[in-house]
Design a protein around this nucleic acid. Structure first.
Lengths: 333, 333
DNA sequence: TTGAAAGCGATACCAT
DNA sequence: ATGGTATCGCTTTCAA
């Protein structure tokens, strides 16, 4: 592998000059530039990224921490991030946090120890204080899907409450008056917000909220099935059920089928996230679209703009969900 | 951020000694080690990974190139890789190749330029020659799901042919004698192997292979639907249909429903891959399990063993698929 | 516009 | 067992 020394020698110029043409920030005469360029070509020169990082104190890497690398959700996010970063010559280092505070924290520290210039975090378990502290320490990062007042400029969020509102409003519009709800873990911010939206929609329609019609799941498919059973077990009537994510909605569908409950004839179902296979289910799932690809892209753009001083980027920090109507919900007979 | 200099000063020892205790490969007296350690603790010293890389010519990073970051398949693979690497203090840099030769090649070069110590590649479009060349150049890498004779030691594969065989054998066992097949793109190695397995199974059962009962899809859901239409359009009878992956199987199901074809009563369906939502579909999909998590883990172990000289790892290069029987296939009435 | 030289923060060889 | 020092390959003042 040729080094900058060999290039400078072959081109008959100094080290500094070669460096200048590489970074073409300083003025170099066309003639010398020409010489350097052809010397580079001749040697097949490739700059050593590590040496560049050490000297410039910039690794060109951004750490991406997500809850789980598998699952339909994060793939899109990673995909968007990688594409965006890559187009600017930056690379992504990945890590997972498994929704566990210690693991998340360890991952963040790992990423920092790797000298990432910035981080994109999708963390749920680590405390607000820890993150506020991180920001205070000067670590540059953006937070996806979590809002913390004190570091609001670091946050890129979906309006989850609005999403919950839309879902419920939709079934209300379809004349359903008795609406059950399967929420995510109540300690998760997005789960709270979605449920809040649900309550708000009920309130706006002058329908009393009934806590017995809410089941707290864990965002897994299985808890959707369990939720349906539990809800049915209350003896309360309901003709529609809103699920805080698509996985749980899928679980409800499965269980409903086992119970010979026809969907959407006897029960309307609405999900949340619009993961890829929401449209593969039968019946296809009405759901609230989570623009995760856009948000991943925006997260990367934030980093590009803030950390790497790229200009001309339009930044946005709150995204709005939108309803995707499919077959699983219908007008109450 | 404290440097090794400050540690050496505070501990009253030389640079070299501090380095020795960090890497604890050379003998250092317990007393000095003690001093160094406490100096490190006092300063909150963290070694600079970049400087280490430059000096040691080892970046501790491995590049992972997949076709697509989204999709249910690669998430599991990345997840396995990240976990395995991480436990040994290595990190993963990701890139995607989009099944396109130029992009794949550019990504490989990008990863190399980033000084990855090794690569894990899931590439389909780039040529054999290119990869053989890469190996010859001394680039250390493992290839997932692709077999190339000349660099067989770099390959970690699933026995796709055996998988295709299993799928067809299964429906044959269920008394289906007229079996249609929707394959992946014929230029992809795995698609060929799977189809081969199908043919072999027919042959072993003394059933003539009929080319008209094969439709070439593109591994996307949509082409499954199109495939069913095309197959039906031939006018040939068939009571079972094998799909070269689960997405296309899902497409077949969807279309079958639209056509009021009952599954599995009127048509048995078998998929391939066992992606997470194969079990969410209705009816749940009989499929061939692709142990991608294990394979991802093994790929990382290969790197750990070959590039980082970790010992005590049991290496394996060919994995066997196994049939996962669910509801979409049944005994021919 | 160009060059000389001092870092960046480690590793590792050679002495002692 | 420990220290001195060259080295990794580049960036970036500071002078010229």
């Amino acid at each position: 592998m040729a080094t900058i020394y060999q290039v400078s020698e072959l081109a008959g110029v100094s080290l500094a000059t070669v460096s200048r043409v590489m970074n073409n920030n300083a003025r170099v005469s066309d003639k010398t530039k020409e010489k350097v360029l052809s010397a580079m070509a001749e040697l097949g020169y490739q700059p050593n990224a590590i040496a560049q990082s050490l000297a410039s104190n910039c690794s060109n890497s951004v750490g991406v921490l997500v809850s789980e690398l598998h699952g339909p959700f994060f793939g899109d996010m990673m995909s968007a991030i990688e594409q965006t970063l890559r187009s600017e010559g930056k690379h992504a280092i990945i890590a997972s946090g498994h929704s566990n505070a210690d693991t998340e924290q360890a991952s963040i520290e790992f990423l920092i120890s790797r000298k990432c210039d910035a981080l994109i975090l999708h963390v749920e378990a680590v405390s607000d204080v820890y993150l506020i502290d991180l920001a205070a320490k000067g670590v540059s990062f953006v937070l996806i899907n979590r809002y913390i007042e004190q570091i609001s400029t670091h946050c890129i969020c979906l309006d989850n409450q609005q999403g919950g509102y839309l879902a419920t409003q939709h079934v209300l519009d379809l004349q359903h008056a008795q609406v059950a709800y399967i929420s995510g873990p109540s300690w998760k911010q997005d789960a709270q917000a979605r449920l809040n939206g649900h309550k708000l929609a009920l309130q706006d329609a002058d329908i009393a909220f009934d806590n017995e019609l809410v089941f707290e799941g864990d965002y897994q498919q299985q808890s959707g099935s369990a939720g349906l059973d539990a809800l049915l077990g209350t003896g309360k009537a309901f003709s529609a059920i809103i699920c805080a994510n698509d996985e749980m909605a899928s679980g409800v569908m499965t269980r409903a089928r086992e119970l010979n409950l026809d969907i959407p004839e006897q029960l309307s179902i609405v999900g949340f996230d619009n993961i890829i296979y929401a449209s593969y289910l039968y019946p296809t799932l009405t759901t609230v679209d989570y623009p995760i690809f856009q948000m991943g892209k925006m997260a990367a753009n934030y980093i590009l703009a803030k950390t790497y001083d790229k200009s001309g980027l339009v930044l946005r920090d709150v995204f709005v969900p939108k309803l995707e109507v499919r077959q699983s919900s219908k007008l109450l007979a």
